[in-house]
Amino acid sequence: MSTRQHHYQFAHVVFRSIALRNAAGMLAAPLDEFTARTTNLWIGVGNRLPEEQRLSAEGLAMNHVPLGAGSGLLVRLPPALFPPEAHFALVVGPDVVGEPRYFVLEESLDVMTRQRTTVLGAWDEGTHLNLGPGPAADPDAFVSAVAARLA
């Protein structure tokens, strides 16, 4: 099986684009309201795809996390199964690094061992950046990896 378009389009295209244009607004929005809007966005992305490619929003959640002098918005995505689907995304606002940043922890396969692994990725104005091996698919480990990268 291959990457599911619903998962990929949401995390790597639609949500990423919104995050890089409006990170400060995302971080300032009331979390329950923003969670509901994000769930509707997930459903909307799916509605653009054939019905058999649509995925449930189950598992989609978000919370604010401390990050440097500010905070980030951690997005837990529905379970990632295939490379390069994202386990998590982290929206970093301009209060932390001067400009919005968008990081993802992607499902991957080690090319040598064919074992499942993760890759830390980021997006910069439409360019995907592979930042190397990622931590376990754990939200705290992901946030720590991004914080270390930003330090």
Rank of each mutant, 00 (worst) to 15 (best):
Q5E: 15
V14Q: 08
R76S: 15
Q9K: 10
G46P: 07
W42G: 10
V13I: 14
L60N: 10
T39M: 05
H6F: 08
A19C: 10
M1Y: 08
E51M: 11
T118N: 06
R101W: 02
A19D: 08
E99V: 13
P66Q: 08
S56L: 11
L31K: 03
A28C: 06
S2C: 00
Q53C: 08
A29P: 07
T3V: 15
P133Q: 12
H7M: 12
R116G: 13
A151R: 13
L31R: 11
E58L: 12
L49H: 08
A80Y: 05
A147K: 06
R114T: 11
A69V: 12
A57C: 10
A11W: 02
L41Y: 00
N130Y: 01
D110G: 06
L131E: 08
I18F: 12
R4A: 13
D95R: 00
L20Y: 00
Q9I: 11
P66T: 10
P66S: 11
L150H: 05
A151V: 02
L77A: 01
P30F: 03
F10V: 10
P30M: 03
F103Y: 15
P50Q: 09
L55W: 01
V146T: 05
G68M: 10
A148S: 14
P50C: 07
F142Q: 03
A19Q: 09
R4I: 03
